[in-house]
Amino acid sequence: MKKIITITYLIFLLSIGGYQVKAAEKTDLLKIDWSFKGLFGKFDRGSLQRGYQVYSEVCAGCHSMKYLSYRNLSEKGGPEFSFEQAKAIAASFEVTDGPNADGEMFARAGKLSDKFIMPYENERAAQAANGGAYPPDMSVLAKARSGGADYLYSILLGYEAPPSGTILDEGVYYNKYMYGNNIKMAKPLEDGLVEYSDGTTASEEQMAKDVVTFLMWAAEPHLESRHQMGFKVIVYLIILTILVYFSMKKIWSRIESEV
């Protein structure tokens, strides 16, 4: 009986997993060994910090990240910039605040409690500036695309020359991993586009990896504590289950019957 239960569970898990995998991998996505995958998966701090650099220098011109605050940059489980660094990053942005006593909005330096500033006033403005395509908000992007981190990584590195005979409209680019292969975002990364402050060589792959790691953290800021807590919870549950199992055996041994 127990076997059957376990087997049913396994079938269930596998079928769900299989379905999900199938849906995700229409074209084989590029795969790399993300440090945040697995039971003990953690973010690579250096990668997160570099990823933030890529985001702020390359992506932030068009893509908002409206659910993140500057304080998140120094929080545990994230890029873990020091408190002072995060404060300096926040202060480097100009935030509109107000209204003041005269009823007017005013600009001030950003504070830790501020949300990431938006590149455009609103979605319409973003569309108008980008040929009608809204550059999606990146706060939860890594969870909002099936394939997740692998998908984003593949898109960033999936630009190639269109197959001969393909005619692309103006402002449309060819990307091997994009649904329908047409993407309105120009190829964002080039070797050496940013200069990493920690001396890492800014190859295209490196930047893609870093920024995707950063996006994964942005989408799932509590991933590390989730993994840590999960491990403790499951170890605890197994211990309790074993204890209860033997208690059950004891109790049922009072009557002559199988459990």
Partner: peptide, 28 residues
């Protein structure tokens, strides 16, 4: 006690979803 034991087995599976694939049953 028997229900309790079965429940714990069930919660272990539940916990795996919550902590290790919380979004797998949802849609991106």
């Amino acid at each position: 006690i028997k229900d309790g034991f079965a429940l714990l087995m069930f919660i272990i599976v539940f916990a795996f979803f919550v902590f290790y694939s919380p979004n797998i049953l949802g849609h991106a």
